[in-house]
């Protein structure tokens, strides 16, 4: 039996004024230690849904429960201790005069005593591998470092759920890999990660559950392997499987002993080398 969900989304509708329904009846549960990909085109409702999970938005109809409490009855500061949100562009999030203040801001807001703050700041910076003097001005950091600082400032609040809204935009592959390793470690330590992304190969490599939103509704919510190997389903939302999955599908169709739902390069290499032992 699975434990109680951390977040329950119950038949949520959301209307932006004057009359645009961004969410039209979304229901889902989010549990401890999940790695979820939230996919969909721009305008599909991904960010609107994500903002419901941490109380930045409350439903027009339906309800969202965080730890069993309706988000309408919780302050954003209270929810921030449970659900952290890292924005797409770190420039939109970073505002303080130095690294220390940037991270301490959130901690003070949620009432962490001043004597505890420095330890939590250091811990969070270590977690994201950002080794800079605490008085460094964040605006002089590189883009990759700003991303890590933005994550650290959310992490310091020790939220059980961390939402990352397209964290890899504008990063090169090396930095994307580094960032994903950091995020994956957080998942291994028991956090739930919700990754909003357009990068199918990346989502397929790390996520275990995939949710596709389409026109404000959930098109699918299933294990990642099922979702990423389903060409027809993805096409409904103008998405494509990763290239390596397309290769596995085609090899499988031609009758080779390769499963049709391979998600990573390493998996495919393992499969091919394992054939050496069979034949």
């Amino acid at each position: 039996m699975r434990s109680e969900p951390i977040i329950k989304v119950e038949n949520v509708y959301y209307r932006y004024p004057p009359n645009i329904w961004a969410l039209k009846g979304v229901s889902l549960n989010i549990y401890k230690q999940e790695f979820i990909a939230l996919l969909g085109q721009n305008g599909s409702g991904k960010t609107t849904l994500a903002k419901h999970l941490n109380g930045l938005l409350v439903p027009t109809r339906g309800r969202v429960l965080v730890k069993g409490i309706d988000t309408r009855k919780l302050s954003v500061a209270k929810i921030a201790r449970i659900v952290g949100y890292v924005f797409q562009n770190p420039e939109h999030q970073i505002f303080a005069k130095n690294i220390y203040e940037e991270i301490a801001f959130g901690l003070r807001n949620i009432g962490v005593p001043e004597e505890e703050i420095e330890d939590r700041v250091r811990e969070a910076l270590e977690e994201v591998d950002l080794r800079k003097p605490l008085d460094t001005n964040p605006h002089f950091l590189s883009t990759g470092e700003k991303h890590r600082l933005a994550i650290a400032s959310v992490l310091a609040m020790k939220p059980e759920v961390i939402i990352l809204d397209e964290p890899t935009t504008g990063l090169d592959y090396k930095r994307i890999k580094q960032l994903m390793e950091i995020i994956y470690n957080l998942y291994k330590k028991g956090h739930t990660i919700i990754l909003i992304t357009h990068d199918m190969a990346l989502a397929a490599e790390y996520c275990e559950r995939a949710i596709i939103l389409h026109n404000g509704r959930i098109l699918v919510d299933a294990p990642a392997r099922e979702v990423f190997s389903n060409i027809e389903l993805l096409a409904q939302s103008s998405l494509k499987p990763p290239q390596i999955t397309l290769l596995s599908i085609e090899l499988n169709r031609r009758g080779y002993p390769i499963p049709r739902d391979i998600l990573t390069v390493k998996e495919m290499a393992d499969k091919i080398t394992s054939l050496l032992k069979t034949y």
Partner: peptide, 21 residues
């Protein structure tokens, strides 16, 4: 060397070459 991503089907080839294929 510069840590960039090749097409996944090329990366598969690198990986297999590493494994002696």
């Amino acid at each position: 060397k510069i840590g960039f991503r090749a097409p996944q089907v090329s990366e598969l080839a690198y990986e297999l070459i590493d494994r002696g294929l």
